[in-house]
Computed example of a mutant assay.
Amino acid sequence: MPLLQRYEYRLKTISTLVMSPRNHQGHYLVAGDFKRADIEQNLNHLVTDGENASPNRVNIIYPFYQYGAYSSYDPKNTQYYIPGSSIKGAVLSNGPQPKAPVNMMVDDIIVQSTHLQLRGLYKLQYLSEETNHSVRLEHFFPNVAVEMLAAGTEYTGTLFCNENIHEYLQVSQRKTQDKLIQLKDRLRAANDASLIEDGGRIERLKNNIDSIMQAMLSNTGAHTLLLGGYKGLALSGVFPNTAFNKVDSAVYVDQSKDLPHGLVQIDKVRLKQGI
Rank of each mutant, 00 (worst) to 15 (best):
1 M>Q: 07
2 P>W: 02
18 V>N: 10
21 P>E: 15
22 R>N: 12
26 G>T: 08
29 L>W: 02
33 D>E: 11
35 K>P: 05
46 L>I: 13
51 E>I: 08
52 N>H: 03
54 S>R: 10
60 I>S: 00
61 I>C: 11
61 I>S: 10
62 Y>D: 08
66 Q>G: 00
66 Q>S: 06
70 Y>N: 11
77 N>Q: 02
80 Y>F: 14
83 P>D: 12
84 G>Y: 07
91 V>A: 06
94 N>S: 12
94 N>Y: 04
95 G>Q: 05
104 M>N: 08
104 M>T: 13
105 M>A: 12
108 D>H: 04
108 D>A: 01
110 I>P: 04
111 V>R: 00
114 T>I: 05
114 T>D: 14
119 R>I: 08
120 G>T: 04
121 L>Q: 14
128 S>L: 09
130 E>F: 07
133 H>Y: 05
133 H>F: 10
134 S>L: 13
135 V>W: 08
138 E>F: 06
138 E>L: 10
139 H>I: 08
140 F>D: 14
140 F>I: 03
142 P>S: 04
144 V>K: 13
154 E>L: 15
158 T>P: 09
160 F>P: 03
165 I>H: 05
168 Y>N: 03
172 S>K: 05
173 Q>T: 10
173 Q>H: 06
174 R>K: 14
176 T>S: 06
176 T>C: 12
181 I>E: 09
185 D>A: 14
185 D>V: 09
187 L>I: 07
198 D>E: 06
213 M>G: 00
214 Q>W: 03
218 S>E: 15
221 G>A: 01
222 A>M: 01
222 A>C: 11
237 G>W: 13
245 N>T: 03
250 A>V: 08
252 Y>M: 03
253 V>S: 07
263 L>I: 12
266 I>F: 03
269 V>Q: 04
272 K>S: 11
273 Q>M: 05
274 G>C: 04
